[in-house]
Simulated assay, not measured.
Amino acid sequence: MAEPAFSLCVYCGSRAGERPEFAQAATAVGQWIGAHGGQLVYGGGRNGLMGVVAEATRQAGGRVLGVIPQALVDKEQANHACDELHIVQTMHQRKALMAERCDAFLALPGGIGTFEELFEVWTWRQLGYHDKPVGLLNVAGYYDGLLSFLRHSMAEGFMGAWQLGLLQVGADVDALLPALVQAAGFGQELVALRAVI
């Protein structure tokens, strides 16, 4: 397999959620990554949206890199179909390796693990620990409440507009993913590949 054109780290639920739109969005993300010659970096599980995005990436010809702690191998059902599967000892190792191996981050719907991962890489970005773009895919209004609270936090003086501006938010895969990949330093020619493929 050729070297991937880019690597996108996707955080998402190990559950599928209640709405079919969630799995549809995870499928669309995986298909976009694969169609553009990219690599998915994710939590290495087969359950829920994690499994959906990984399988969609693989089916679309993309490369899949999973990172999972030993303690979650059974619980999240480690995906041994990954092109590269790293089984690590701690969550800290998991998150550090995922961050190291990607060019940009994207959060899909998920639970507290997804929230924690999103906020950590967003915090790292504002502190200058990395300069990789961070995106939030707001599927079916799932993150409306969170976004409202973030604006409330800004209005109350605990966050600046520039910090909120570091988070790229969108509901459309075909708009948000190209924006993240371009912000990561990959040119328009990559995004234009879809018309050729």
Rank of each mutant, 00 (worst) to 15 (best):
A161N: 09
D131R: 14
R46W: 01
L106A: 05
I33M: 06
D144I: 01
A81N: 14
S14W: 10
D174T: 15
E120N: 08
Q70W: 10
D172Y: 04
H36P: 02
E21M: 11
F158K: 08
A183Q: 11
A161W: 00
L97H: 09
A5D: 04
G165A: 09
F105V: 01
K75Q: 14
E189Q: 13
M154R: 09
M1I: 09
G66E: 04
L118T: 10
V173D: 06
D131C: 07
G62Y: 13
M91E: 05
G66N: 07
L177A: 06
A5V: 15
R151N: 13
Q77Y: 05
R46M: 14
L127P: 02
A171Y: 01
R19D: 10
G157R: 04
G51E: 04
L49S: 11
A71P: 00
G141Y: 00
P133F: 09
F6E: 10
Q163F: 03
L190D: 02
D131Q: 15
E189A: 10
Q70E: 15
V134Q: 03
A184T: 01
Y42I: 01
R58Y: 13
E120H: 08
A60N: 08
D74H: 12
F105I: 03
I87N: 02
V67E: 11
Q126W: 11
V169L: 00
K95M: 11
Q89E: 15
G66H: 03
E189I: 06
I197R: 13
D103V: 03
L108Y: 08
A5M: 12
M98Q: 14
G48S: 04
D103Y: 05
A28V: 02
G187L: 06
D144M: 03
G62F: 14
T114H: 12
D172L: 00
Q182F: 03
L49R: 03
G165W: 06
L180N: 02
A192M: 09
A54F: 12
G45M: 05
L147P: 12
E120L: 07
K95C: 09
L166Y: 06
A26V: 09
N47C: 12
L97W: 04
L167A: 08
A35H: 11
L40H: 03
M91I: 12
A184S: 13
L106C: 08
N138P: 13
G34I: 05
Y129I: 13
V134H: 05
L190E: 06
L164P: 04
L146P: 09
V173N: 05
R101P: 13
L180I: 13
T90D: 02
Q93K: 11
R15H: 06
A184L: 01
D131G: 15
L193I: 00
L137D: 03
Y42P: 03
A175R: 15
V196Q: 15
